[in-house]
């Protein structure tokens, strides 16, 4: 039994026209019939260009956008059939990490209040020293110095902010983490630190992760399997090595051919 199962998942957006009498003139098929199974502890890389529907797919899995059709089954439970209240309760089990950590952190909250709030969603009884201890433990877990606990997001560098965002995502002890372009905004040297961290966390905390990126070399490095998305559909799915070495679909070949490479003659 796969941990997360998407069957024939569809998210369509109606395009409406008219001022008083709105009528549907067209539909945007952002996610158009996706079947995907993810095992526990796996990192699935999802690649595709802007507009291919990868962010809509992640939002649909997160139940932030209602699915038009199909099912999202997490650990045996059909999320798309739950009531909004039940979804809210279940959302602790799946968390997101976004591309721009500065935009996703509250600028008026210190690291400690951000993390404490996230921790208490799962454990509302946590207070005082126990809460402070949990915050410090979380910070160490993602490689942040616990002395920074009283600082605000603007006082951190991009890489450190992404560590805060990761810590906040981990605070409610999720089982599934959706990382939407988590390293795209970072410099090369910082990017490698965050990739190492994510890899360690998945291994140590037994997480399942969907890693969304447009950078194939990053996805190749971190993911076990790669799914290539194009116009709302998955056009290729396979073992990461296999997809990179022997792409089957024309679109995957085009993506691979577009990656700039460092050319050295000696290699």
């Amino acid at each position: 039994m796969p941990y997360l199962q998407l069957s024939d998942l569809k998210t369509h957006f109606p395009v409406k026209k008219g001022l008083l009498f709105k009528r549907e003139v067209d539909t945007v098929r952002a996610v158009d019939g996706i079947d995907l199974e993810i095992e526990k502890g796996e990192i699935l890389g999802l690649v595709g260009e802007s507009g291919c529907g990868k962010s809509t797919l992640s939002r649909t899995v997160m139940q932030l956008v209602p699915a038009t059709g199909g099912k999202v089954v997490l650990d045996g439970e059909d999320l798309s059939a739950l009531s909004p209240d039940a979804v809210r309760a279940r959302r602790l089990d799946f968390q997101m990490i976004f591309q721009d950590p500065y935009a996703s952190l509250n600028p008026r909250m210190t690291v400690s209040s951000t993390l404490a709030e996230a921790l208490r969603t799962r454990q509302p009884e946590l207070k005082g020293d126990a809460l402070a201890g949990a915050v410090a433990e979380l910070m160490e877990r993602v490689g942040l110095d616990r002395r920074f606990v009283r600082k605000y997001p603007h006082e951190f560098s991009g890489g450190q902010r992404q560590r805060i965002a990761i810590a906040r995502a981990l605070a409610p002890q999720p089982k599934l983490v959706l990382a939407d372009e988590p390293v795209s905004a970072l410099d090369v040297s910082i990017q490698s630190q965050i990739l190492n961290l994510l890899k360690d966390l998945v291994r140590d905390l037994d997480l399942t992760m969907i890693f969304i990126s447009h950078d194939l070399s990053v996805v190749h490095y971190i993911a076990d399997r790669i799914a290539v998305m194009h116009f709302g559909k998955i056009v290729e799915l396979g073992d990461a090595e296999e997809v990179m070495a022997r792409p089957g679909h024309d679109y995957t070949k085009k993506l691979l051919a577009s990656i700039p490479t460092i050319e050295t003659h000696r290699r």
Binding site: Q191, S192, N196, S217, V218, Y221, A240, I262
Partner: peptide
């Protein structure tokens, strides 16, 4: 530190 220069699963140099 570029992922492309690493074998899969190998710790990235930082």
């Amino acid at each position: 530190s570029i992922p492309a220069t690493h074998a899969k699963g190998e710790e990235l140099y930082t």
